[in-house]
Amino acid sequence: MEAKEGMEYPELQGAVAAATPGFSGLRQSSTKPVWTLLEEAAQMKTEGNAFYRERNIRSAIGRYHRALLILRGLDSDVMSVKGFGPETPALTPEQQDSLRNTQVDCYNNLAVSYAPCLLQRQSVDYTRVREYSLRVLQWRPGDVKALYRAGVATLEMGDAQTAKQYLTQACRGQPNDANVRKHLQKVEEKLNRELQKEKAMYRGMFSSGLKSSSTEGIDQTNRAGV
């Protein structure tokens, strides 16, 4: 699913508004130079990091989403299909790198903001953690942190097979990471339990079939002897 920089969740729009006075919820067109917009987005990310370190998570989330909204107007991949919607400025390779680096950092930080070990939440929205992590992987397929978070979130959402793919890739990138190995082991255990349950189900079906066939054979024998 495509993330929409905070607009897909109404409460996050409130976080963005709280973090940036005067924010209306809609991206206003800007005639600012590209580098100015890139610097503004980087500044928002830096402020978000500062709020995060203070455990002011709501303000941190607002800053990260505001940074992504600023960058949205520069990103041709996000804005529109070719030939429709507003034109995006042509970026130099250096500007494109700056854009992607800030986007990746913001999405990684958003994913971390929903991680239970840091927020100590009773309930965690793993859908968001997975969504933001997959957005990072769209641009950086080998990002170990995003692979790890996508794997943990996918496991918690009940898809152990897909979680194994993410965590196996993360383990290749960081083979000595204890957290990655621990969750990969949890995936293997879950898959093994599911396999054993499936085998038991088929054994039960097979036994029932044999018993039914045996009963029918006895009945036919008894009728033949009458």
Rank of each mutant, 00 (worst) to 15 (best):
A41F: 10
A41R: 10
A42M: 03
M44W: 06
T46S: 15
T46C: 08
E47V: 14
N49F: 12
N49Q: 15
N56K: 14
S59W: 11
R63L: 07
Y64W: 12
R66H: 15
L69R: 13
L69D: 10
I70K: 06
L71E: 01
R72T: 06
G73H: 03
L74H: 01
L74E: 05
D75I: 03
S76E: 11
V78E: 11
M79I: 14
G83W: 10
F84S: 14
F84I: 11
F84T: 15
P86W: 08
P86Q: 07
T88F: 13
L91W: 11
T92F: 14
P93W: 13
Q95D: 15
R100Y: 10
R100I: 13
C106P: 03
Y107W: 12
Y107N: 05
N109G: 01
A111I: 02
A111K: 03
S113D: 10
Y114P: 00
A115Q: 03
C117L: 11
L119C: 11
V124W: 01
V124D: 03
D125H: 05
Y126E: 00
V129P: 02
R130Q: 09
E131Q: 12
Y132A: 05
R135T: 08
R135P: 00
Q138D: 09
R140S: 04
G142K: 07
G142P: 00
K145E: 05
K145L: 05
Y148F: 09
Y148M: 03
Y148G: 00
R149Q: 10
A150W: 02
A153D: 05
E156M: 13
T162R: 15
L167R: 08
L167M: 10
T168S: 12
Q169W: 00
Q174V: 06
P175R: 04
